[in-house]
Each structure stands twice: as C-alpha cells, then as structure tokens.
C-alpha cells in the first residue's frame, strides 16, 4: 500500500523582482527540493527556525499555495494516488475532505461573525454531507470529541479563550473524518498548562481516528513529545529526517546538533555547556552557495561552499551533509570567522 503522503522534490519559489515583461528575475526560495514521507496514523514533526520554510511546506501540501516544482502524492483511501501538485483548485475540491489544517493563531482561524455551530458545520455543508439534522447532530458529537459542551453552540468565538478556540478549530478539522491534518504550530500561541491540554487531546484523537499529523513546530520539546518521526528544515532545505529517537539521541547533521544544543530544557539539573550557534538564518532570497548552512556550520569543510549536499541514507534516515558523503568527507576544515563552536555556561 502506498504511503498516505509522499512529497518529492517540492519547490515553492516566490518571485521577488520582475523584469520589464513582468517575468520573475529573482526568486525567494522558500522551499527548495524537499522530500517527505508520511504514513497512515503517523506524526511527522517538521522542525526549523523561522524562515526555514516549514509553514510554507505545510501550506503547499494542502495546496493553499501553488508549488513551482515537485509532486505531492496523496493516497487517502489506500488505492488511488493523486498528485496534488498537478491538480487545479476545482479538481482538488473533492479531495479536500481528506486533508485538514489546524492553525497557529486561534484568534484568526475562526470567523468572528459565525457561531460555533456555523463554524463546525461549514465543512459538512460545503461538502454536502448528510441532511440538516444529521449535520447538527454531528456538530454536537464533534464538540464533545474536542471536549467542549454543546451549551456553546450558539456562542461566537469572542466568548472563548485561546485553548477553547483551538478545540473548536480541532472540531472543525475533524468534521469530515480526514486522514491527514497539517498542524501549523498548534500550541505555540497557548499558555503552558493549556498546551498540555491541547496536546493530550490531539494525541487521543490521533489514536482514535488513525490520523496522520504533519506537525509543524519550532519547539523541539513539543515535537519530541508528540512526533513519531522528525524532519529538520533549514533555509528552505531539508537537512535531516529520521525517527524521533535517531534525531534526538543521535543527530548527524551539524545543524540538528546545534539546534538541539541551543534548545533550553525545563530541567535545571541538566544545565550544561551549550553550543552557541553564531550568525542568523540567511535571507531566503539571497542564499549562500553550496550547503546553505556552511556559513554558520562549526564543522564546515572547504568543499561546503561549492557543493550542494545530496540526500544520503544512513541507518534508514536521510541526511544532507557532505560530512556523510564518501567523496567529500575527508576535505580539510574550512577556516571561517564567526562560526566557531563556542562553549559557554
């Protein structure tokens, strides 16, 4: 059976400057050559700093954006595979029921002029699901699933706190029994104690409905908690992906290592020397040549500014780093300023 979702060589480029005839001259390469696989009932954590293209990848998979290149193979029923990247919005409409989204900002993802009932009802109505009465019953059921009382049916979003709004968003996403839910930082706007509530709810629902989550987040601890597999992005490229254990316990790519080292842990006993990564994420319209990470990389080699690393398979995980490519791994170390591995703490 084909996997639920297979993204191959996805490129999302936005035109930055145009020439006289209105054709793009330079591009912002938000997502460049990304390959992902997501199996049924699995949670894939997509991690990266801001500007790494993780949210754009999520939007492109749902075709809220049009990718420039690549294929998005989606197989909701286990039989027929559709290439979402090649379809028009109209062709996509019948497939929409299988893929949904949970947004980052619960204050902008609910229409303030609609009641909770209308909001949760909308996907059912749009897809012509059941009779009017059946739809209303389904809404009650969904709110129950999301842990909300049906007293709330006629309330407007302004009556709810962030956590409750996120529950409404989850109820709406569940309405059509999707097989894939793209979650764009679903808990990062919430308070700590509410985060835990929402994460628990999401994990329960996943087990119950065999949902697959593409969980986009910058918080490594949250991803460590919820994900089965993890993919790390940097400046629009995928640098490493593997199982949670592989990524967190034995990261291979220098960026993954630095990211893990920089991420603070809520445990004072584990205070340790930290690798402080110098510099900042590059501007996606002006990326460095070769490996995009080389200007910040503590282990950069002389070949890194020239050669774009290819995907290398090591122990069932993918890494894109020249350190792991046979041809280049013995290159001399690149002397550069500002990217030293400083240990403070």
């Amino acid at each position: 059976m084909p996997p639920l979702l297979e993204v191959k060589n996805l490129r999302v480029w936005f035109p930055k400057e145009r020439n006289f005839f209105g054709n793009p001259r330079t591009w912002v390469k938000a997502v460049d050559d990304v390959c992902l696989t997501l199996r049924r009932g699995e949670t894939l954590g997509l991690v990266g700093e801001s500007g790494s293209g993780k949210t754009t990848t999520g939007f492109a998979i749902l075709r809220a954006l049009t990718p420039r290149e690549g294929s998005i193979l989606f197989c909701p029923d286990g039989r027929k595979t559709h290439d979402l990247a090649a379809m028009t919005q109209k062709q996509l409409r019948p497939l929409r029921r299988h893929m949904q989204m949970i947004f980052q900002d619960p204050f902008s993802s609910l229409n303030p002029r609609m009641t909770v009932q209308q909001i949760v009802l909308e996907p059912l109505k749009v897809n012509g699901e059941g009779s009017a009465q059946e739809r209303k019953d389904r809404v009650r059921e969904l709110l129950g699933e999301a842990g909300l009382s049906d007293q709330f049916l006629n309330r407007y979003p302004h009556a709810f706190s962030g956590g409750q709004r996120q529950r409404i968003v989850i109820a709406r996403a569940l309405a059509l029994n999707p097989s894939l839910i793209v979650c764009d930082e679903p808990v990062s706007a919430l308070d700590v104690s509410v985060q835990a509530q929402i994460l628990n709810l999401m994990m329960d629902l996943k087990d119950k409905y065999n949902l697959a989550y593409l969980f986009v987040a910058h918080d490594l601890e949250v991803v460590r908690h919820i994900a089965d597999r993890v993919a790390v992005m940097y400046a629009g490229r995928l640098v490493e992906d593997g199982t949670k254990k592989q990524i967190f316990d034995d990261p291979l790519h220098p960026y993954t290592r630095s990211l893990l080292a920089a991420s603070p842990k809520p445990d004072p006993t584990g205070r340790r020397s930290r690798i402080v990564l110098h510099g900042e994420v590059p501007d996606p319209s002006n990326l460095p040549g070769g490996c995009v990470f080389h200007p910040r990389c503590p282990r950069a080699m002389t070949c890194c500014p020239e050669v774009v690393p290819a995907q290398t398979l090591i122990d069932g995980r993918n890494v894109r780093c020249l350190l792991y490519e046979e041809r280049y791994k013995d290159c001399p170390k690149l002397q550069q300023t500002g990217a030293a591995e400083g240990k403070i703490g």
């Binding site: 029921r97 989204m101 947004f103 902008s108 993802s109 229409n111 996907p123 968003v169």
Partner: peptide, 26 residues
C-alpha cells in the same frame, strides 16, 4: 490572508462562498 478564509478554502469552499460568507460580512 486570515486563517479562517484559508480554512474555508481547505474545507473545499468555492471562491464565491469564501467571498460572500467569510469576507463580505467581515
């Protein structure tokens, strides 16, 4: 650009519905 308009598109709403149900009343 609001997420709820995007959510409607993702739910399969037609452009007309997005405009008249979500954008105009707002």
């Amino acid at each position: 650009e609001e997420d709820y308009a995007r959510a409607a598109v993702i739910s399969g709403a037609t452009p007309a519905r997005v405009i008249f149900v979500h954008l105009v009343p707002n």
